[in-house]
Design a protein around this nucleic acid. Structure first.
Length: 413
RNA sequence: CGGAGUGUAGUGUAACGGCUAACAUACCCGCUUUGGGAGCGGGCGAUUCCGGGUUCGAAUCCCGGCACUCCGACCA
């Protein structure tokens, strides 16, 4: 993409009405635009990152055998009454249509997927079933905060699985946990992420969360570095030691963290509410057990900005960067430089690189500052100087070292 | 939902109760310049969040509302 055509430009200064680092950076770099508290637009660069986060998650879930679909945000009251959550699920937006019928803007989708499967699940041959979606969720947060970390409208991946036996659910659950680890590893968050034992809410004694350590987080967790496990402070009264090495909770390191994913055994909580069942080999009606697994996509975008950035701006990991290369031409009025830049841009694209091409007629300093702010992994610089040898300057975002390369070396990827 | 703070061009700031609301930046035009947010000249852009009140006079003081941020409560 030519930067001269990117309408969402960077700002010289951070917005004054955002205190969190992730929102400051993402707004200043032109990745998102704030619409209201906890509600953001995703601008071209931000959307590219979201799509790439989704792609990483999609690939992991596909390898589990899970299948993607899409369910509605607009949900009717009856299914929420069936589970009793019309009255008990507090942070939801309720609305009426013009005839007075009640709806919920979905904060989650158990109330859709479970009755939906009554149309398709009939035999033990159909199980297990695991489906997921990337969906905009709505929660009437009493206090949205920390930029993208706690919004009122946000994108989440939610996966639901249905099994014949608790043992089969347990096995799948463990595989999902492993997939989540792979996801956070690829996103460059592996060293900050801890599988954390947390409260189970209404359904189960405990659930497990994937928590990323950051001072911006709103949870407090007790981490065990030996086992890469943690315990959420909300349950330290119930748990006395690390489940891996039996280190007492009191001796674990205390950190602030943000929950980016959770995995949850729902058992028959919802399959009973909707009387979802299947026929076994003997023709008996049996109840499937269920699990649900969430992963915050827009929250992860915020976490990446919060955790991986530096003083100069954003620093994108290879797996989700909006572009692979940032190509800068200095002195764009110089016809030779521009022609060489245009050609390299075109050649790199043909070679499969995703390139952001700063062809704007602005000063060198401004281009460097913007390149740091936007945070692509590699910066290429072409100028009258480099043209004399026919080379380009290559610099990694995360280092200060600059090396000279011939375009041909870059093209063979 | 309780508490605190802040609302002034797109963005960031300034302005004692008193002149036509100032400066920077962004944006537009011209010239010049191109290795870490260059320079010169010209220009566009504001019902000072909204409503009421006090006053000869309100961006400024008072009341109410709204919005945003922060702390707390809440967060299957």
């Amino acid at each position: 993409m030519r930067q001269s055509e990117l309408f969402a430009r960077t700002r010289r200064e951070a917005p004054k009405d955002e205190a969190s680092r992730n929102a400051e950076l993402l707004i200043q770099a032109g990745f998102v635009n704030k619409e209201s508290s906890g509600v953001y637009s995703y601008l071209p660069l931000g959307l590219l990152v979201l799509r790439r986060i989704e792609a990483v998650v999609r690939q992991e879930l596909t390898s589990l055998g899970a299948i993607e679909m899409l369910m509605p945000a607009l949900q009717t009251k009856d299914n929420w009454q069936a589970t009793g959550r019309w009255d008990t699920f507090t942070d939801v937006y309720k609305l009426k249509d013009s005839s007075g019928k009640d709806f919920i803007l979905g904060p989650t989708h158990e109330e859709v997927i479970t009755p939906l499967l009554k149309n398709f699940l009939s035999s033990y041959h159909d199980l297990p079933i695991s489906v997921y979606q990337f969906q905009t969720k709505f929660r009437d947060e009493k206090r949205a905060k920390s930029g993208l970390l706690r919004g009122r409208e946000f994108v989440m991946k939610d996966l639901y699985s249905f099994h014949r036996t608790p043992a089969d659910l347990d096995q799948f659950y463990a595989r999902v946990a492993n997939s989540y680890r792979n996801v956070f590893e690829q996103l460059g968050l592996g060293r900050y992420t801890y599988l954390t034992l947390a409260s189970g809410g209404a359904f189960a004694p405990h659930s497990e969360e994937f928590q990323v350590i950051t001072p911006a987080g709103e949870d407090t967790i007790h981490v065990c570095d030996n086992c890469r496990l943690a315990i959420n402070s909300e349950i330290v009264n119930e748990v006395s030691e690390c489940s891996g090495c039996h280190t007492p909770v009191a001796k674990l390191r205390v950190e602030r963290a943000i929950e980016v994913g959770n995995i949850f055994k729902l058992k028959t909580r919802f399959t009973e509410a909707f009387d979802l069942c299947y026929k076994s080999e003997s023709g008996q009606l049996e109840r499937p057990v269920m699990g649900c697994y969430g992963l915050g996509i827009t929250r992860t975008l915020g976490v990446l900005a919060e955790v991986l950035s530096d003083d100069g701006g954003l620093v994108w990991p290879e797996a989700v960067t909006p572009f692979d290369l940032h190509l800068l031409i200095l002195g764009p009025e110089n016809a030779d430089v521009r022609a060489a830049g245009d050609k390299l841009y075109s050649d790199l694209g043909a070679a499969g690189w995703r390139v952001l091409y700063d062809d704007r007629a602005v000063s060198a300093g401004e281009k460097f500052a913007d390149a740091d702010l936007i945070g692509l992994p590699r910066r290429l610089v072409m100028s009258a100087k480099t043209l004399t040898t026919g080379q380009v300057e290559v610099k990694q975002r995360s280092s200060r070292e600059v090396q000279l390369m011939f375009p041909s070396e870059l093209l063979g990827r």
